[in-house]
């Protein structure tokens, strides 16, 4: 199938992009790597009147590196992260996750911001950035705001972003030298979207323990009491956590999420 008709603009600055988006109203859409939007357009499941191409905006490509955080431009590609072309404050988690996304040809185009904005429940960055408690810088017609990724996703393919807002960058806290992380994804084949994801980060120096379930029906599930995962009867605990996350016991989804969580915790050791 072929995409429906749309207009296309490639603004030179973020300000121009925002102007085009507000003028375009609900029927204008941002185009970044096009690796999610492209298939949706081809299937005619997305029908924007106008695409505003932000892939090469300099504001969205800039990265910053300071003492306690790293900021990655929203248009940084999965491949750039995989190859370590941008700073990684997680000692390898980012590269590891990036390498597991789709296929290289997709990673060369697909962007961090696009993945977050697309908010596929099974997407890797959505879960990863919630795990790391990353923050987004979002620009809109009325200025900028900062948003926790945890508050971004409202449901499958739905976020709290207004149609004329653009994710500019993602700010990630820097993990301490002895921090540990674990990311377990269950999918049927490489490049397939996940059936279940669980991720854990333990950073004692910063007093941080976070654990997240991904590939949920909607937003990732931040496990309320992650400390408990670090000791105790993980089998019963994992099952209980998954039940409380919303999956009914004795379902396929419950089973694979519970196993995934156990394996993520085991992988931390």
């Amino acid at each position: 199938m072929k995409a429906p008709h749309f207009e296309y603009e490639k603004p030179a600055t973020l300000a121009d992009a925002l102007r085009l988006l507000s003028a375009g109203g609900d029927n204008a859409k941002v185009l970044a790597g096009g690796q999610s939007l492209g298939p949706l357009l081809n299937l005619r499941m997305a029908r924007p009147d106008l695409l505003v191409d932000i892939r090469t905006l300099p504001e969205l490509r800039a990265c910053e590196d300071d003492a306690d955080s790293v900021t990655l431009g929203a248009a940084v590609t999965h491949a750039a992260i995989e190859d370590g072309q941008v700073p990684d404050p997680t000692h390898g988690l980012l590269a590891r996750v990036a390498q597991g996304i789709a296929y290289r040809a997709v990673r060369n185009r697909g962007t961090l911001g696009g993945s977050l904005a697309h908010a596929d429940p099974a997407a890797d960055w959505v879960t990863t950035m919630v795990l790391l408690d990353a923050e987004l810088r979002v620009a809109g017609a009325d200025g900028e705001r900062v948003l926790r990724v945890e508050d971004l996703v409202e449901g499958p393919l739905s976020t709290c972003l207004a149609p004329d807002e653009i994710i500019v960058s993602v700010r990630l806290p820097r993990l301490s030298a002895d921090a540990r992380w674990s990311y377990y994804k269950f999918n049927r084949k490489p490049g397939e979207f996940a059936e279940a994801i669980a991720a854990v980060v333990h950073d004692p120096a910063r007093g941080v323990v976070r654990a997240v379930l991904g590939a949920m029906e909607g937003a990732p599930h931040v496990i309320p009491d992650p400390h408990a995962l670090l000791g105790g009867d993980i089998d019963a605990l994992a099952a209980d956590i998954v039940t409380r996350s919303g999956f009914a016991p004795d379902t396929y989804e419950h089973r694979v999420h519970a196993v995934t969580l156990r394996r993520a915790v085991a992988g931390l050791a």
Partner: peptide, 14 residues
């Protein structure tokens, strides 16, 4: 199933 993401064909890893 309407895409090759839903209808899974074996790849080199399978």
């Amino acid at each position: 199933a309407s895409t090759l993401a839903d209808y899974m064909l074996p790849g080199a890893t399978e």
